[in-house]
Write a protein that binds this DNA or RNA. Structure first.
Lengths: 187, 187
DNA sequence: TTAGTATGTAAATTCGGATTTACTTATGTG
DNA sequence: CACATAAGTAAATCCGAATTTACATACTAA
């Protein structure tokens, strides 16, 4: 029949699988507990290939974080919906799956990954955010938004505290939404 | 002369030295980079003694965090000074020295230390804080305060971003102070 | 003073993960 | 087809830290 032959070996696909698995794993456990073995089991790939394609665990982490960091979801929305838009992303119920915020926090567990993460956050989040907010105070406001979002997220997924999850959760979400929106409104 | 004999061997003192050094080291570098060798060099003590006196690195970390966590500085101040009081602690210029916030963040780098930290934070910070704030919304407000403070701190010391350090720093401090105070005022 | 225990030390052991190595198998090109 | 090389594999190696061990010395109480 017209079935096209499928490559059993495909560097592109393998590389892609590793990166994808890495994003998932690095999003869901601390760097030190995210083993290459885990990642490669999920990717269906031999461990040695990580070094062939990415050089090291550290560089793989950099790729994974870099590929996941994206501010465009937040700044492609009408300003009056900003708070809601961010809150929506930050409160959604998927502890599994690719998520740059945990990666960011986990990056702080090692100086090398931390330094790398700081650079990425500056270039990819803070700077574009600041210019979207605009004005002389743009960068300061962007920083405030990041602080609130990160703090919220820390106690929601990294160090889970009751109020961020239980019945009080609704109140927390409302607060998050409103306090972010206020920052934009007063920018 | 009347010089009293000084003990060369003193379990109490040794234990204390280890704990103190541990608090310093765990406050200034990620858990995985805070080696027992480092801690014991600072404490002037043999590495094996950590296990004799504390059982393991993990338990030593628990002791260190537990001993450093203390909410009383914040809740022993008149309510109208709350924002200023917290901001003062969180913006002081001593990256060195004992500091529970970094330990808390670094605790998230390992599931065991993370779980332990979550329990400690609940008992020693969130709960007393909530009852100090009082009322039905006490716990929610306490959680909001913690989120802001932690987020701020994260980008000030753990993943250092420009606005938290440079000329814009004053603006950030003012924002921190005011947004915390507002939470208390409206409680 | 001396025996027994508390304290301290140096070195051996363990351990688990990342990285390297030497090798095998597929792919597609002339 | 046969060869060169890209892609993949299994196992060996490395590595650094925590922990254990076996031993040495100080302290105290009888």
């Amino acid at each position: 029949m017209g079935d096209t032959k499928i490559r059993q070996r495909d560097a592109q696909r393998t590389r892609h699988n590793i990166l994808q698995a890495a994003q998932t794993v690095f999003s869901t456990r601390p760097y030190s507990e995210a083993s290459l073995k885990d990642i490669c089991r999920i990717a269906g790939v031999n461990v040695a290939l990580v070094n062939r394609y990415f050089g090291s665990k550290e560089l793989l982490f950099e790729m994974a974080l870099s590929a996941a960091l994206d501010v465009s979801i937040f700044v492609s929305v009408p300003r009056q919906d900003f708070g809601r838009a961010v809150a929506k992303v930050f409160t959604q119920n998927e502890p599994e799956g690719i998520n740059p915020l945990p990666m960011l926090v986990y990056a702080s567990a090692q100086s090398s990954t931390r330094d790398m993460a700081v650079n990425l956050v500056n270039e990819r989040i803070l700077a574009p955010f600041a210019s979207w907010v605009g004005g002389k105070r743009g960068q300061v406001i962007a920083a405030q938004i990041m602080a609130i979002a990160t703090g919220y997220f820390t106690y929601r997924l990294i160090l889970p505290l009751e109020p961020f999850e239980s019945k009080q959760r609704k109140a927390m979400e409302t607060w998050l939404t409103e306090s972010l929106q206020v920052l934009i409104d007063n920018a």
